[in-house]
């Protein structure tokens, strides 16, 4: 518990900053919705005629004129990508920061097994990512209440559940990478998040690249799919979870025998 609480304390500023930033932009975005509400038919027609770009953002199947459609497209990008950056940074630094900050010598000369230390750090990462996502959900609900719309609990809950899974998968992938690194891997974490985001855009825009949907976790957070299907697609979620678990297993196996610098 000591190490778990220590990890949460070390990460609290980053958690607060990222959560407030994402939450702020979600609020701003939804608060602008009433201004656009009257023009949504024209906007919807315009967005629907942008070819591959339209498909890439799922606007060919979503009605941006509705609050949930607007939320899924506009806020979805903010929460999905912003949260992915936070999850990646938190995951990639969890283990590597001990060596880059030269604190591994302090931590690992206490009577803890490597497995316990890594497991506790993983738990702290997952808790922080979950707290960030729950707070973003709270900001989402608050923003809808502020524009005097009934809260679409089911749709909002589904979208945020998908974002949470996305962020947990990214955090797990980056945590696994973190075990192999001796120095800070922030660039790798951010690069991975951005690459997977663009992989999803490409997969949506080009049918020939459909296979990318089975690689990028952004695929199962696609608002158009979620709102039209009414649920997560297990064919996309399960491989994602498998990648995350595989990264964690490999990371743990390596970390247990790793030479610390």
């Amino acid at each position: 518990m000591t190490l778990f609480c220590h990890e949460l304390r070390q990460g609290r500023l980053s958690l607060a900053v990222w959560t407030l930033c994402i939450g702020f932009f979600v609020l701003v975005c939804v608060l602008m919705y009433p201004e656009f509400e009257g023009q949504m038919e024209e906007m919807g027609a315009m967005f629907a005629s942008m070819g591959g770009f339209t498909a890439a953002f799922g606007m060919d199947r979503l009605n941006i004129g509705t609050l949930t459609g607007f939320y899924a497209i506009e806020c979805g990008s903010i929460i999905g990508l912003g949260g992915a950056f936070y999850a990646a940074l938190t995951g990639i630094s969890a283990l590597a920061k001990e060596e880059s900050g030269h604190t591994a010598e302090f931590l690992l000369t206490h009577p803890l097994s490597r497995g316990f230390a890594a497991g506790t750090k993983l738990a702290a990462v997952l808790v922080q990512v979950t707290v960030m996502d729950l707070a973003c959900f709270g900001f989402g609900v608050l923003s809808v209440l502020l524009v005097d719309h009934p809260v679409p609990w089911g749709d909002l809950g589904l979208l945020h559940a998908a974002y949470l899974l996305l962020h947990l998968e990214l955090a797990a992938l980056c945590f696994g990478f973190s075990a192999f690194r001796h120095s800070s891997g922030l660039g790798i974490g951010l690069g991975l998040a951005v690459s997977l985001y663009f992989a999803n855009l490409i997969a949506n825009a080009a049918p020939a690249a459909d296979w990318l949907n089975y690689i990028t976790p952004f695929a199962y957070t696609d608002g158009a799919d979620l709102l039209t299907e009414g649920g997560l697609d297990p064919a996309l979620v399960l491989p994602g979870m498998a990648y995350g678990i595989a990264a964690l297993v490999l990371g743990f196996l390596h970390y247990r025998r790793k030479d610390m610098r």
């Binding site: 220590h6 070390q10 900050g101 030269h102 604190t103 010598e105 302090f106 000369t109």
Partner: peptide, 13 residues
């Protein structure tokens, strides 16, 4: 065991 490294590093803040 009590270990004192040549250069002691601690967590920031």
């Amino acid at each position: 065991v009590g270990y004192l490294p040549a250069e002691a590093f601690f967590y920031p803040g």
